[in-house]
Amino acid sequence: MEVRVANVRKEFERFPALHDVSLDIKSGELIALLGPSGSGKTTLLRLIAGLERPTRGRIFFGDEDASQKSIQERNVGFVFQHYALFRHMTVADNIGFGLKVRNGASRPPAAEIRRRASELLDLVQLSGLEKRYPAQLSGGQRQRVALARAMAIEPKVLLLDEPFGALDAQVRRELRRWLREIHDRTGHTTVFVTHDQEEALELADRVVVMSQGRIEQVGTADDIYDTPNSPFVYGFIGESSSLPVKVENGEIWLADRPIGLSAPHAPEGEATLYFRPHDVELLDGCSGCIAGTVAASRRVAGTRRVELEIGGERQRVEIELPVGHPAAQKSRVAFRPGRWKLFPAA
């Protein structure tokens, strides 16, 4: 089911949580809403679900305007951050709940509900745990039961709020791969909220980066990482370094020296240069480069991260060098960013 969010604004007691957000979600897509806390990602998810009503704007499921529909009518599968499993019901009863509360003719007979529950338990690889209570399950198992319960109602859209937030790192990675598999097998249109960029980039077909109630950028993992469209996205996704620079005659200048990068289409004047610390080219001589004195050097896993002081104003930037690279031993290092981007100075 396609989902279209059109110019939605949401205020909580006059305080805006979302400003004019629009988003098209394709049928069968796996989408991540990624952002720091307070960015409005969970609010957007709850609006799609119908747990909140938009202050302005509309939400379409397919061609149908769902804005005024209740959560029951929208038929969405929602997986809550802390799972919200019914603690007094067994795993099988939890999964069958959505079918049991249907009325009249659409409610399947009890035996059919039981069969569906076992089938879904197989799908989430928890066969045989029908009779357990939620308190008797591990965090990862509860997560799977919550997903099975949400899928039992054959939802049009599957919505997950921080699905792996409460789990430890090992289980997270495992469940992440597993969720992708489930998605590929069942083909549900799926939206999940996360603050973990690794999770979003690895798992989602497209990532929606949000900040302060606005969508900053929507794109594939490659788009988001390689061509961030704002200083926020550059800073939020992956490692980044930035320097205040000046554009003159299509050349980029750092203080009074050109750094050997040309930006013919950039507007003249003050700007900020962003680049990835690992995406730099080390130079020997320095005619057109960024040069700095080594202020600190740390070993981080497979690389060495070097902090440089640049220019008279002692700007600090970080770059990454291969371990054992001779430059790490020197007191001065010259480099030029490989891939980079200019944003007008704020």
Partner: peptide
């Protein structure tokens, strides 16, 4: 409100939510 929201999202009406979820939680 988590459990009640979950019940509503699964299609339960207000009365079913109270009867099957809220009441057992506080029984």
């Amino acid at each position: 409100n988590g459990d009640e929201e979950a019940a509503l999202s699964l299609g339960a009406n207000g009365w079913q939510t109270f009867w099957y979820v809220t009441l057992p939680n506080v029984k």
